[in-house]
Design a protein around this nucleic acid. Sequence first.
DNA 1: GGTTCAAGGATTGTATCCAATCCTGAGTAG
DNA 2: CTACTCAGGATTGGATACAATCCTTGAACC
Lengths: 215, 215
Amino acid sequence: MSHATHITAGSVVLAELRRAIATGELAPGQQLVQESLAERFGVSRVPLREALQVLEAEGQVVHQVHRGYFITELSLPDLIEVYRLRAVLEAEAARVAVPLLTDDDVEALAELAARIEDASEAGEVGAMIEANRAFHFTLIDAAAMPRLSRLVASLWDATDVYRSVYYGSATNRERVDHEHASIMAAIRNRNATTLIGELDAHREHAVAELASLVL
Amino acid sequence: MSHATHITAGSVVLAELRRAIATGELAPGQQLVQESLAERFGVSRVPLREALQVLEAEGQVVHQVHRGYFITELSLPDLIEVYRLRAVLEAEAARVAVPLLTDDDVEALAELAARIEDASEAGEVGAMIEANRAFHFTLIDAAAMPRLSRLVASLWDATDVYRSVYYGSATNRERVDHEHASIMAAIRNRNATTLIGELDAHREHAVAELASLVL
DNA sequence: GGTTCAAGGATTGTATCCAATCCTGAGTAG
DNA sequence: CTACTCAGGATTGGATACAATCCTTGAACC
């Protein structure tokens, strides 16, 4: 009741910051000067700091006392760690979710997969990223483990910087479409083991591609 | 570096709040009235809210816009989810850590296990809880996966409320000592599979005991 | 030339103050 | 008696103002 209804200045700033980080508008390593950002968003420093503290707890920014906030720089080992943790947690989610999937869930997943493909062919990177996230989190949320969903979400957020780069490539987009088809097949068969294998491969390709970019 | 040196009002309040939550001084479900708490800690509401926002990001408190912060109530499903996530993540940590363990690490772990036992026999619950946490996180940190350590730490924090209850019982303390002995044996043998099994059993006993208390 | 040190401004941390929202309870109508 | 309404106080969200810290810059000294 109070989630969508009450938009607070802090939540607006938080969303804006998230977007700016995801698009690379705020580059890794860059200092976030509070007064400039506050002015840019048209708020005071208080709600801005609110948002920054949330991002710090998620690992999106780092904080040094009396020095300020900086966008976290993701090293290659960091990237690998994030994807390894995702593998562990998303496998658990899949294991729990598969037996719980209703036909409606499968239907919704198929629809999202189609939407991803449309965006992919049209080259609409932003739309594809959004639909892709919805697709994967529909599956993860189906496990009905809210904390698990939150943990995985924060891991996704950590690599948001690179996502637009990854989907910028048409070959990557095409591969993703094929992988999603395999994932959907495993979901339709209610085969958790196969599904986990497909998800692992899906992630492996992404991390391999990203690793070559980070270097 | 900058952790111990720069004590900010917010960090002091955060530590105090953590302690108060862990000891049950602040009970689950209770509202946290900002002005009262600020006065109690001798700071203004600004750094207090800072601390509360951090705790919210960790799931220790929940927030409702214009209504305030409340200590999270952990339902039985929540408790089970936390322990299931710990199982998944700590297993991964053990898998990674075992091949990396130096003799010094094993030495340190043995020492901590001894310290736990001493505290256990003396009935010093606080000291036991602290040493126990150090013991388990020495192992987890040995995996050299900082994000993993942070995630697991936040899961531990989520059930801090119940830890003092659990260790309040002498039979529980005794069982924990035995389990730690088995865990140490697996560590000494560098046997990750056995270790994970022992850790799982260790956790299972705890969650079973806590479940009976929560009801 | 390189190093040390002290202003001064720039930036962050905190307190105080105001605005917006919520909660309570008395009163009223049905 | 119950349900509704609407002040008034209580509490939170946010802005402004002040204090503490840091970072630069330039001059003095070796």
